[in-house]
Design a protein around this nucleic acid. Sequence first.
DNA 1: ATAGATTGCGCAATCC
DNA 2: GGGATTGCGCAATCTA
Lengths: 214, 214
Amino acid sequence: FNRPVSQFLLLLLLLLLLLLLLMSDSRVSSVIQEWVSSYQGQSHSSPSGNPQMDLLSYSQGLRPDDRGVTEQMMGLSYLPYTTSCLSNSSNSVTAASAHHEGHSPQQDFSPFLHPSMRAPLIKRSISKDSAEYRLRRERNNIAVRKSRDKARRRIMLTQHRAMQLQDENQRLQLRIGQLTQELDTLKHLLSQRHMQGAEEGTGDTPSESTAYYL
Amino acid sequence: FNRPVSQFLLLLLLLLLLLLLLMSDSRVSSVIQEWVSSYQGQSHSSPSGNPQMDLLSYSQGLRPDDRGVTEQMMGLSYLPYTTSCLSNSSNSVTAASAHHEGHSPQQDFSPFLHPSMRAPLIKRSISKDSAEYRLRRERNNIAVRKSRDKARRRIMLTQHRAMQLQDENQRLQLRIGQLTQELDTLKHLLSQRHMQGAEEGTGDTPSESTAYYL
DNA sequence: ATAGATTGCGCAATCC
DNA sequence: GGGATTGCGCAATCTA
């Protein structure tokens, strides 16, 4: 997203939420509950009911970046022997702090050359360079996209909820002001009436004991 | 972060914010303003005044992952010619949709082999494989870390503000209930008094339609 | 123990 | 030009 688009979107969403606020007003409660549930209970796929995309859209990796295979390569830290490259089929990457494994289809680099990370080499033929490793990566990429979308939605939602709550707050405070003023007026009126009606005896205060003419 | 730690941190921050709320209570306004300003105006380094880390902490890349040099390698998509690897010094990566440029110190891959991305090859000797390119990358990494920290802080803040606002809302609604009840009592009392003391005028009613004696 | 979810991080593109 | 943001892939870790 570039700035103008995101700003426009934000504004649009704000307007929409304002409309929603106007329509159903008694929805201000349970902010934390929803957030926590959306944070922990991710068993439901699209909590916000976004009609845009669901699981399928993620599995269809049709982003403009995804044409073809989309490989990504890897770490290879701390190697002064840069000349003997991957074509040696045995030296380069795959082990450098277990970060960013080398990949490149039908090419295998056995984990080598890093003294601190030699143990995982034996670990169950790790890092199959182009077998079902790609499958796992692709699945994880899908999951990552999904999770990040979810996070984005969650953040937007929280933001809008905050705005909504702020508006509600303002309204409530206004209402409180009104009520307070009204109450003051009434109290004043009552006390005045007490003053005037003092000749009939029965002086008392409005809030508690109002049994004059009993 | 794992869950318990993050939950504990969240609770701690919540308590802190509650304290802050108790100290200065008139701060509930201008939620959106702050958010937007923190979103757009990023000229200030640490807006929340977090005493934890500032620019220096970012430049000192001392994360447990950062020992040594920490390289990262790159894309290389769409190459059926996997056998002729990097040692050919001219074929592999660097151009695949301009993603994840190959790196590996004192090894240079000239951008090749992708028909759609041939133009940037001429572009000012791009992708210096290990010169000041590394410097730029390192600086960008620092900036990225900083930006993400900021985003994290912002999100937490918004969240806590939402909770805060919700509490405030509850309080306000309670107060409104109280006021309304009180007002009803008073009104009832007044009307009763009107019934009984019908001989005295002076009716002025605050809100809507109790103007008997006008 | 296997798969999805979350997260920190680096890279590159883009914004400002 | 240089910091700030952002989408994305990778790997580690968590969780169910």
